[in-house]
């Protein structure tokens, strides 16, 4: 889904436009996506792309949608405000977000220790959001050790901080964190 460039309120896209990525979490209801996109055009944003991961839920049970758009910083702020006024959950917004992607593997009694709580704690403690996760049960019966691969989007330069926080959360639940060796630089 995209719009013609320059469809913003004030004519052509100005030099001060910047690219932004907005990550939204939508409730799975008809019309939610449209509801979310309308404030972008109405406030002079230029929609570049919408990535709608249907069938994929965040740990909170929402549908993650990633929107790329161009706007001036002032307009962008208005867009984010308008989205929030419309009741759309804006998880992350900014041009300099998602500078780092971290993939970790968690090992332990993930289900018994409430994996979604583990990930929520991490999201609360840091700038990171859970972009993706994949769970694998142990093959042996009677063993509740589970492995999960988790992809985290974090603000640029915060990779180490996120891993420190993850280690702390994991230690409380006696989970093993297989960290990436070096966080990818922005």
């Amino acid at each position: 889904m995209s719009e013609e460039p320059g469809s913003a309120l004030d004519g052509p896209v100005s030099d001060t436009d910047r690219a932004y990525t907005v990550r939204l979490e939508l409730v799975d209801q008809p019309g939610e996506l449209l509801n979310a996109l309308r404030p972008i055009a109405e406030n002079g944003g230029n929609l570049l792309s919408v990535f709608h991961e249907r069938g994929h839920l965040t740990p909170r049970g929402h549908i993650p949608v990633e929107v790329d758009l161009e706007a001036t910083p002032e307009r962008f702020e208005r867009i984010v405000d308008a989205l929030r006024e419309n009741g759309v959950n804006v998880v992350r917004a900014g041009a300099d977000r998602y500078g780092e992607q971290l993939t970790v593997v968690l090992v332990g009694h993930l289900v018994d220790t409430d994996l979604s709580d583990t990930l929520s704690q991490l999201e609360r403690a840091t700038s990171a959001t859970v972009a993706d996760f994949s769970l694998r049960l142990a093959r042996e019966e009677g063993d509740s050790v589970t492995s999960a691969r988790v992809r985290l989007d974090a603000e640029a330069g915060t990779g180490r901080e996120v891993l420190d926080a993850l280690r702390e959360v994991a230690a409380e639940k006696e989970l093993t964190v297989v960290e990436p060796l070096v966080e990818v630089s922005p």
């Binding site: 593997v105 090992v107 694998r136 093959r139 589970t146 492995s147 297989v178």
Partner: peptide
């Protein structure tokens, strides 16, 4: 004790 599944996920 690292499970094989952690390696296949990786």
């Amino acid at each position: 004790g690292l499970p094989t599944e952690s390696l296949s996920l990786a």
